[in-house]
Structure formats: structure tokens, C-alpha cells
Design a protein around this nucleic acid. Structure first.
Lengths: 225, 225
DNA sequence: GTAAAACCTTGATCTGGATCAAGGTACAAA
DNA sequence: TTTGTACCTTGATCCAGATCAAGGTTTTAC
């Protein structure tokens, strides 16, 4: 990391600004410093599928660096963000002279392959209610693990309330959530309602109170609601 | 490759034999020597989604090696196959002492990420006719590039016939093709028929004659049939 | 604090493709 | 050749979720 900082470049992007676009030449390797970005694909009709949402510490845009081709997807800031960019040649140089770094990189790409594997499974083998349940569970895991190194709950850490109720806060709009799990806002809305009717959750704008984590977990694996 | 052979192990699998299963501990790194294998996920109800089909020269099963976790999917021989296995520790050793190899590995994983990106785009932004058209086009590319280093056409090389007609041969059953593009055999059958009615192709068992590569390409990008 | 803009919900309708069911084809083994 | 087995096609029906439409809520910006 220290080495990285000496050759890096910081860029700022406002909410909604494109960082790069599918087809652009891959000019380097990106790290989220602050803010949040989405990596996504657009269809000709304008439908969007989000591939990743990344926050501070995550890297992205490395595929073209190793492969020598163009970006396979686009990236956009979904809130005001500061992004660190390492120019391609400097980064390749760093990697080849630091074996530990290349092992880290291999592990990182492998993790991403695993995540894609799960995303493909979700899209093709599971129905929307299961995907949504799985997303809520993942989110509660993520927010739990972050609650230690992050001071107050600015709505980002899950907090255990009355008994074993668990609060998670959606980090993105419901419309974006729809694009992430491969459905529409209308369907998200309807399924949240069904989940609430089944006493699995309670929705209050961006805060979701998980009332039955067991039931949600069942739903994510197989069930119909 | 020479180095690899001294530490490798050859295994034989008959058609239909499992090579490893989702959740198994990743014990090493696999290379297809001869034959053909599929990497896939199964839902609880038994529905299958194929993630990759690999032939001679392809590697697979490396994700858990770098990540230290279990296989995210299963692998099965779809014809009698010979597979080379490198035990995990020996492979890691080889990688760390051979910088060029790790760069190759990074490029390989990156390519796979790109492929998954396309697969996710197909599953979520395109309809079945487009996916099928795209598959036929990919196949014709693959078979074209192989026709040079492969003698006679055993039904694996595309051959230009009368005018600009192009023949491709399905390397897998139509049922497997359905699992690969995320649909059912019935739907494959119906769409092949529609494509034939539209004079895009002509189907004769496993041989597909592409009669209108332009039209097929249009269909793969946007169209309705 | 208020207005405009973005986002969300709910209802009605539509449709791509899954599922179910019943023959038909083709290849492999004896 | 025959016959068994795996694979494929075609038709009828069904359904999850998309789309269209209209109103409601929340956030942002001045």
C-alpha cells in the first residue's frame, strides 16, 4: 500500500459521473478511496444489470490490465467518490516485482469469480424472492462485520434491537437494487410487501428490520413465499 | 509446461463421471488433456446451469487454490477424458517461483471474469433467441480458429460450403445446450425451428448450417425473431 | 420551508418461456 | 438387423414477473 501511494493518482467523481465505459481502453487499476461505485452493463434498450457495488478499499477495473483488452463493463459513482488510479505500466511493474502482491491479486480475482458464479446461479436457478432474501442476508453479514471499525451507526451498521431483531440499511435505492438482482422496482416493492406479510421483515424506507432470519434463510435457499 | 509434467498426475474419467463436486475441498489445479468436461451448478430441485465447457488445453478448478476455500461449482466429464492434476502445494510453489506463470494465470482468470460478465449480461439482459444466436456465432468462431491445427473435419471444423454457407457442429447435446444458455430443451427446439423458418440456419441433427450470418448477428444483439 | 425532482407503490394486463404430456428419431449394443 | 435407451420435437396449458399507468412519498436544491 505504501508503494502504491507513491505512484497513484487521485480522482474525484460526483454522484452519477461515469468513471469508465464498456469498450474503453483499460488504462489502469482503480481503488475506491471514499464513496461508492457500481460496475454495470447496459442493454441496447437501456436496461441495466449491476455486476458489483464497491465501497472503500475495493479494487476494480483490473481485468483489462492483465488481459490487454478493453473494459467489459462500465463504472459509475453512485455517490460523490474519491478514486485512486494506478497507471497500467506502473502497476504491472509493481506486480511483477512483488510476488506477494500477485498472489493477493490471484486470490482477489478468484473471489470475484466465485461471486460471479453465485450471481449466475441466482439469475438462472433462483426466483426473485430467493434472490432478494439472499441479498438481505449478505447485507446483514457485511454490515455486521463493518460495525466494529466504524464508529456510530450512521445507518450502515446493523444494530440488534428488541430481542433478536436485526436492522440493515439499504446502501442503494430500491431501483438500483432491482438492477442488481435482475428485476424491476415494481417487483421489489411487491416482494418486500409479501415478506412483510409473512413476518420475515419490516420495511421503513431504507431500513429493513429482519424479524425472522431463519425464515429468510430458508427462502433464500429454496422456497416460495 | 515441461516443469508441470514432472509434478503432475493423470486421471481418467468416463462419460458422466464427477471430477469434483461443489463444496469439496480444492485439492489442486486441473488441465484437460483429452476429452471434454462441464463445470456446472445444480439447484435443489435438480435444475442445472452450466458455467463452462472445457476441452483439451483448458485449465479449471483453480479458484479454491488461490482462495483457500472450497469449489464453488461441480465438474463432470461429458465424454471419456484424461485430466492432469497438479497438487495444490506444488502448484503454488511453481507459481511463486515463476513470475511469468503468475502473469499468465492473472490473464487467464481475467479472461474468465470477462466471460462471466458476458454470461450474466446474456442471462439478465437478453432473451433466449439472442442467447442461442450468440452461442452459434461463438461456436463458429471457435471452430474456425481450430480448423487450422486440426486435420480433417471430424465435424469439429466449420466448412464453407455452397457460397457463404457455414457449417458448425454442436459439441454437446441439445439438452446440455439448454442448460448452458439457461433454458429448456423444448425452448431450444422451438427456437431452432423459428430460426430455420426465418432462413437464418438449417439444422440437421448436430450440424447447423448458418445461412445468414448477418441476420444471426443482428438477432444476437437485440432482435426478436 | 417549499417546490421540484427523484423515487416508490399499487393495480391491471400481458407475455416469454416453463412445465406437462405424448409421440418421434437416432445411435449403440447385442 | 433388431431393440433398448437416450435424446428430441410438438402441442396444450400455465405462471412468474415484466410492462403500462397513475398516484403517493421522500429527498434535494434553492
Amino acid at each position: 500500500m505504501e508503494k502504491i501511494k507513491t505512484i497513484a493518482l487521485e480522482l474525484k467523481f460526483n454522484r452519477g459521473k461515469l468513471i469508465f465505459q464498456e469498450g474503453d481502453k483499460g488504462d489502469g487499476f482503480y481503488i475506491v478511496n471514499t464513496g461508492r461505485i457500481k460496475v454495470f452493463k447496459l442493454s441496447l434498450e437501456g436496461k441495466e444489470q449491476i455486476l458489483h457495488i464497491y465501497g472503500p478499499g475495493h479494487t476494480f477495473g483490473e481485468v483489462p490490465v492483465f488481459e490487454g483488452k478493453n473494459f467489459p463493463a462500465s463504472a459509475m459513482a453512485i455517490e460523490a467518490s474519491s478514486i485512486i488510479v494506478l497507471p497500467r505500466d506502473k502497476f504491472v511493474n509493481l506486480i511483477t516485482t512483488t510476488p506477494a502482491l500477485s498472489m493477493n491479486m490471484l486470490a482477489d480475482l478468484s473471489k470475484r469469480l466465485r461471486d460471479f458464479t453465485i450471481q449466475i446461479e441466482n439469475l438462472s436457478l433462483k426466483e426473485v424472492p430467493s434472490r432478494l432474501a439472499a441479498y438481505l442476508l449478505t447485507l446483514s453479514q457485511e454490515q455486521k462485520s463493518k460495525s466494529s471499525d466504524q464508529g456510530m451507526n450512521q445507518g450502515i451498521s446493523p444494530t440488534k434491537d428488541r430481542g433478536n431483531e436485526l436492522k440493515v440499511t439499504l446502501p442503494i435505492s430500491k431501483a438500483q437494487l432491482a438492477n442488481l438482482i435482475g428485476t424491476t422496482p415494481e417487483t421489489i416493492s411487491r416482494i418486500f410487501k409479501k415478506m412483510a406479510d409473512a413476518d420475515l421483515i419490516q420495511v421503513k424506507t431504507k431500513d429493513i428490520f429482519i424479524k425472522d432470519i431463519e425464515g429468510l434463510s430458508e427462502l433464500s435457499e429454496s422456497g416460495r413465499i
